[in-house]
Structures are given as C-alpha cells and as structure tokens.
Simulated scan of single mutants.
Amino acid sequence: MKRPYGAILAGGLATRMGGGDKGRLLIGGQTLLSHVIDRLSPQVEGLVLNANGDPGRFADVGLPVVADSVDGFAGPLAGVLAGLDWAADQGATCVVTAAADTPFFPRDLVHRLMQAAEGQTHPLVLATTPRTGDEALKSGGGSRVNRHPTFGLWPVALRDDLRAALKDGLRKVVLWTDNHNGREALFSADPFDPFFNVNTPEDLAKAQKMLALL
C-alpha cells in the first residue's frame, strides 16, 4: 500500500475551551496544531487541514484548508469525509486522520495503522489504547480498549457511503466503522495515553506537564 495522505481535524466548536481554535493554544512555546503537523507530516504524502469558517485565519500554517461538506457541525465523521474528498482529488486511495488538539500521538501512527489494515479490501482502522485502572472497572467487563475515533485510516472508496450515512443522521464514528468491518491498532499508554486531547483549561495545564515526559 502506498503512503497515505493525512488530514488534521480542527472543525469542532471547542465549547469547553470557550470557543475559538483550540489548535492555536500553546504548550512548550508551540501551538497544539504545530505539534500535530510536526508529528504527522513526516508520516504522510501530503497534508490538509479540516476547519470550518474563514480559511484565511490559517494562512500562516501553509496547508490547504477544507471545510465540512455536511451542514450543522456533524462531528468528526464530517471532517473525515472532507479529508477523503480532498485525498480523492490527489489520486489517493486512503487518508489518515489526526485531531488538532492531540499533540502527543505516536510518530509511527501511520505505519501501525497500515500494518493493521493488511489484507483489507478497504483499509479501515481505528487507533486504540488499553483501558487501565478506573476505566477498566467502569467498563464492567466490556471492551478493554479505548477507541480513538479521530485517529484512523480511512478508504477513499467508501467516501460516498460515508456521505450517505451522514446525510441520514449518523454521527457516531464506531457505528460506521463497525458496519464496514473496521479493525483496531493497539498503541501503548505508557507513560500516558498518547491520544490525550486538550478539551479544557485543566487539560492544557496537564499537557504542559506531559510534554516534559517526552
């Protein structure tokens, strides 16, 4: 399989941070978005940023910007679809997504997702990490992993199926991936979950401390 293209998802409303672009928040003197670009760009053939509103506000980032094609802030799947449509225009067969507020995801994300997709007709894989401590207890014997739906490998061939599902009201990522026999790639959560994302001011302070562990 050829190296995929990448899409950074920044189309959310950031309500718990008081609105605005979470990717512009700073840790270690660098924006969250910049951390994400630094980690993802070496792993992919090319990058696009999915963001709604005026794309000009990201002119300094140096990436093409695509908005959701589904109205009403339909969640991460709408961003995935925007990335797939863009990737199709590049002649790509698949795209890897990453969230703009998740600065510590693995530097081998793409390689591991593609490994997990070997043999699939339509590569479709979500990143996961083990549930530990209280999370495992709360699961009540259910799934032993946390699925991270904004970090995945997605097939361009299924973009019209995804578009139809979104128009029918589907919003939950794992319902769509499960319907298409999606797989999982398990990543270590030591010393912390690499898919930790910044949703609140408290999370931002925690991310500053986590940065020192890298």
Rank of each mutant, 00 (worst) to 15 (best):
K2D: 02
R3C: 14
Y5A: 08
I8G: 04
I8K: 15
L9S: 15
A10L: 14
G11C: 11
M17A: 14
M17Y: 04
G18R: 13
G20S: 11
D21V: 15
D21C: 08
L25Y: 04
L26V: 14
L26M: 11
G28D: 11
G29L: 08
L32T: 02
L33A: 15
I37K: 05
I37H: 03
R39P: 09
L40K: 08
S41W: 10
S41N: 14
Q43T: 06
E45F: 00
G46L: 05
L47R: 05
N52G: 13
G53P: 06
D54T: 08
A59H: 10
D60H: 02
V61A: 12
V61E: 12
L63T: 05
L63A: 07
P64E: 11
V65F: 15
A67G: 14
A67F: 03
G72E: 01
G75D: 04
P76R: 00
P76F: 00
V80Q: 13
V80A: 03
L84D: 05
D85I: 03
G91R: 03
T93M: 05
C94D: 09
V96Y: 04
T97D: 01
T97N: 00
A98N: 01
A100E: 12
A100N: 03
D101R: 04
D101M: 07
F104W: 10
F105I: 07
L109N: 12
V110H: 10
E118I: 06
Q120R: 07
Q120I: 02
T121E: 14
H122D: 13
V125K: 11
D134F: 00
A136V: 01
K138V: 08
S139P: 12
S139Y: 06
R147C: 13
T150P: 05
F151T: 08
G152N: 07
L153W: 09
P155A: 09
V156Y: 10
D160I: 00
D161Y: 00
A165I: 08
L166W: 01
K167E: 15
R171V: 09
R171W: 02
R171G: 06
V174S: 15
V174Q: 15
W176N: 09
T177W: 09
N179Q: 02
N179D: 10
R183G: 13
E184N: 10
L186I: 00
S188V: 03
A189Q: 00
P191Q: 00
F192S: 07
F196Q: 05
N197D: 15
N197E: 14
N199Q: 15
N199I: 04
T200G: 15
L204R: 14
Q208R: 07
K209N: 13
K209M: 12
K209V: 15
M210C: 11
M210P: 13
A212H: 06
A212S: 10
